[in-house]
């Protein structure tokens, strides 16, 4: 059924518009303002035009080098965690019990990591991974692996990635589980009559039904990993050296650490632009998938 055109609906949307505009547009204007100016302290500002942007996008300058280094690092991180969390989440969703009290118990345990404040997630892994007092660090070292996330780049990366898998795979699993639950039993019966293999059931019934939720999962996971800050900051502080300095960490360093407002603002805008573009791509794909699927959407 088509929606009716009604311009008065704007009145219903107005409160949301005002609240979000207050929180989004006003601060963003400050950022735009800063990005075009230079300051030498004392609240004196000088017009700098697109100077900061030129510096930012030129990898031969210090700022540009730091930006691109953290950008590639962050993209690599997002790619790795997506490659682990999506398949693992699907497998976990497929392994969920069918009914009984164990379903509720599993759901609650799965959701638990999602509800822990991000700095506490960092703290948990900081403690868990320490070679002297942490179970993981202690166990790895006692079986002969020289593991130390404070001094070794690879160990720091591994810790941050395992931490993210621990923290967020449940989100993918819960989304997939929701998608799987919406498949009517009749589909499986039909597959059984046709003598479909387990794999065929997965690719022909379960995967297509999980399409939409998987898209949401990938979108949320990509975005959140692309702006990850607190967890790696608590565990590694961006180190050793700069090896786990992701874009947000770099940005906060420049903005609140060095108080280089112009540079930070230029970086913020480019960062935001990347996010909006990626978001737009996902949104378009998602709404298209939605319209194709409209007819059977009513089963909710």
């Amino acid at each position: 059924m088509d929606k009716t055109v009604n311009q008065k609906a704007w009145f219903l949307v107005l409160p949301v518009f005002l609240v979000v505009a207050f929180s989004a547009i006003l601060p963003l204007m400050t950022v735009v303002n800063y990005s075009m100016q230079d300051t030498f302290g004392n609240n004196q500002f000088f017009w700098n035009g697109v100077g900061w942007f030129k510096e930012l996008l030129d990898p031969s300058t210090d700022l540009g080098e730091r930006f691109f280094a953290s950008l590639w690092r962050n993209l690599f991180f997002s790619a790795v965690i997506l490659a682990i969390e999506v398949p693992l989440g699907i497998v976990v969703a497929l392994s969920m019990p069918r009914q009984g009290w164990s379903v509720a118990a599993c759901l609650v345990i799965l959701a638990l990591p999602l509800l822990i404040p991000w700095n506490v997630v960092g703290t948990i892994w900081q403690i868990f991974g320490r070679p002297d007092i942490g179970l993981l660090g202690y166990a790895l070292n006692s079986i002969g692996i020289n593991y130390n996330y404070v001094s070794n780049d690879f160990d720091a990366w591994a810790t941050v990635i395992v931490m993210d898998v621990w923290h967020w795979t449940s989100l993918v699993a819960l989304l997939c589980y929701a998608g799987l639950k919406s498949i009517p039993e009749a589909y499986y019966q039909a597959a059984q009559i046709d003598g479909a293999s387990r794999w065929a059931v997965f690719t022909a019934i379960q995967l297509p039904k999980m399409n939409r939720v998987l898209l949401i999962a990938v979108l949320l996971r990509f975005m959140d990993s692309f702006m990850i800050y607190t967890e790696p900051f608590v565990v590694t502080g961006g180190g050793p050296g700069n090896s786990t300095t992701f874009i947000s960490i770099e940005l906060v360093k420049i903005a609140l650490g060095q108080f280089d407002l112009g540079k930070a603002a230029a970086l913020s805008l480019v960062y935001n632009l990347i996010i909006i573009i990626v978001c737009w791509i996902f949104y378009t794909v998602m709404t298209n998938a939605g319209t194709e699927r409209r007819p059977d959407k009513g089963v909710a």
Binding site: S23, A24, V31, M223, S248, I249, L251, N272, C279, Y283
Partner: peptide
């Protein structure tokens, strides 16, 4: 879409403003 894009906005960008 604009609303959705704000859900994705990095907090680090907004901290200072």
């Amino acid at each position: 879409f604009w609303l959705l894009s704000n859900r994705m906005a990095p907090a680090a960008v907004y901290a200072l403003p």
